[in-house]
């Protein structure tokens, strides 16, 4: 039983990490209807920038100058500022010119942006695997291990706490503030939003900056766990099923979707082989080991299932139909 609990906890915490990435997608999709394919690379870029600033890397030269290395408290705000500049540039060079175009055109622009991000990130900070050391706690949480015999990684607890804080802040921002209301208005009908004097440009800069900050959070968590390298950008692919489950426009949906997928895939990975083998015991001899590595694709099967029965996701906006 304890082992099941441990599996669930570790699944939930991994799920939260997916949610962090999915959150960035949701923000941008909500406010501009743009599917930001580059969210994963944005996380990589943010993490690279942070590592670069921490180790005093001079951009475009691939050399470190320890004298320029910044302390953590300065590097994080500076990275956030860089993400803001990125948001301004994206608005100025891409979104502004593609306003009111077909979805597929915007999507292609985002695919292009993904590769530009990746290339520029490589050029600026170098392509080698980097270690991100923010002094985040590593290893198991001893207290829980000693008293309840549960193995939980500290970094995952930190990720969960970060996600909780981000979601709360974002939810309050969207529901309670003037800018948040304007963001939701733009999401509903951007022409009408223009007509009441909401400036789309400012709104886009705000959401892309917010998505940049979320990307930084995701990049830091994943980077601290498994190093800052190209494969970090692939976590975006894991965020897709999370979005389909939770709904593309829902912030709580991103969290719940992440949890379901995280827990689901861990449970299936660990127990499906044994269960199937037990079910067919006596009939055919099944090697439980065959049903392994489901972790990689289980999420997509779940997403497919959802697409068929609840395409707007668990928390997606109700599709309002008037008769």
């Amino acid at each position: 039983m304890l082992f099941v609990l441990e599996t669930v906890i570790s699944g939930a915490l991994a799920g939260i990490m997916y949610s962090l990435v999915a959150l960035g997608f949701v923000l941008i999709f909500k406010a501009s209807g743009v599917f930001n394919f580059s969210q994963g690379v944005m996380a990589l870029f943010a993490a690279l920038t942070l590592v670069g600033l921490l180790s005093g890397t001079i951009p475009f030269t691939n050399t470190d100058n320890p004298a320029l290395a910044l302390p953590v408290w300065a590097a994080i705000p500076l990275t956030i500022f860089v993400m803001f500049i990125v948001a301004v540039l994206i608005e100025k060079f891409i979104l502004r010119h593609l306003v009111n175009q077909e979805h597929i055109i915007l999507f292609m622009a985002m695919v292009g942006l993904t590769y530009v991000f990746e290339g520029v990130g490589d050029m600026m900070w170098g392509s080698d695997v980097k270690v991100l050391d923010l002094g985040l706690p590593q290893g198991a949480w001893d207290w829980l291990f000693d008293t309840h015999d549960l193995y939980v990684e500290k970094i995952e607890m930190v990720a969960a706490a970060t996600a909780a804080v981000l979601v709360t802040v974002l939810a309050v921002f969207f529901q309670k503030t003037r800018i948040g209301r304007a963001l939701r208005a733009v999401a509903d009908d951007h022409q009408a939003a223009l007509s009441v004097g909401i400036s789309l440009r400012n709104i886009w800069i705000i959401v892309w900056s917010a998505a940049g900050i979320v990307a930084l959070a995701a990049g830091v968590m994943w980077g601290a766990k498994s190093g800052v390298q190209f494969s970090l950008s692939l976590i975006a692919l894991k965020a897709l099923p999370v979005l389909i489950l939770g709904g593309f426009t829902s912030i709580p949906g991103a969290i719940v979707g992440g949890l379901i997928i995280g827990i689901g895939e861990k449970l299936v990975e660990v127990f499906s082989g044994e269960l199937i083998a037990a079910a067919f015991a006596g009939l055919i001899e099944i090697d439980p080991g065959v049903f392994s590595a489901t972790e990689n694709w289980f999420a997509y099967v779940l997403a497919l299932f959802f697409l068929m029965f609840r395409p707007q996701g668990l928390f997606g906006e109700k599709i309002i139909e008037r008769v």
Partner: peptide, 18 residues
């Protein structure tokens, strides 16, 4: 062109955005 997923109250308030 109302904002469908906003309440009537919120719709009116967006008019005061500027």
């Amino acid at each position: 062109h109302c904002f469908e997923h906003l309440t009537v109250d919120e719709n009116l308030l967006t008019g005061a955005h500027t």
